[in-house]
């Protein structure tokens, strides 16, 4: 693998990986976006079938896998959809996520930033589909460029203010999968959000 990262970004990536792993996120590495998409599809191939959360509503075809990729840019989505052509059982969507209240198999999103000291993803979730993709999916895959990792939230206040300060904005800090310890303080992963979080660190944007 070609190493193009500098010493300090490499260190930040290492801290990020360690902290994210502590909260049960799985961190993977990829050299570019193509490799990240390959990994995403490999994760989808391993995934058990969806456990539908809605008794009512239309039934889903159990042989299908729903993959939502709402915030990939035009080229990225095109690329993913080309890759998906080899897998007819994958149903790739980028909007109308409200049609799947019972859940979707996987949401793949890019992340705007990573915060090393807590292993946190920062995701601009202004549009509803990005939000729903990261909430209704059983597995959330986030693609994060190594160069977008910062040391602490406080060290990137200016960048965060650009996101948070905008009218109508909805900015999500995501750290690990959804969790609870509300019964007997025993940790359980996967409550109202994803059951699993995978982060693919990409060396080149």
């Amino acid at each position: 693998m070609v190493n193009t990262t500098t010493g300090s970004t490499k260190e930040l990536a290492a801290v990020f990986t360690q902290k994210a792993s502590l909260v049960s996120a799985c961190v993977h590495e990829a050299k570019d976006r193509t490799e990240a998409m390959d990994k995403t599809l490999a994760l989808l191939a391993q995934k058990p079938p969806l456990d539908p959360q809605m008794a009512s509503g239309k039934k889903q075809d159990p042989s299908k896998r729903i993959l939502a990729a709402p915030n990939l840019d035009h080229d990225g989505f095109q690329q993913l959809s080309d890759l998906c052509r080899a897998f007819p059982h994958i149903h790739l969507i980028r909007d109308r996520l409200r049609d799947f209240p019972g859940g979707i198999d996987m949401g793949v999103t890019t992340a705007d930033f990573g915060i090393a000291d807590t292993g946190t993803l920062v995701i601009n979730s202004n549009d509803e589909h990005t939000r729903l993709a990261t909430m209704l999916c059983e597995v959330h895959v986030a693609i994060l460029a190594v160069s977008d990792i910062r040391e602490t939230a406080l060290s990137m206040t200016k960048e965060l203010e650009m996101l948070v300060g905008r009218k109508g904005s909805y900015t999500a800090f995501v750290t690990g999968a959804s969790r609870t310890a509300d019964i007997e303080r025993v940790l359980a992963i996967g409550v109202h959000g994803p059951l699993e979080l995978h982060i693919i660190l990409v060396e080149e944007k």
Partner: peptide, 9 residues
Amino acid sequence: AITSYVTWI
């Protein structure tokens, strides 16, 4: 270290 989600609206 931090909660799973911090949401800024």
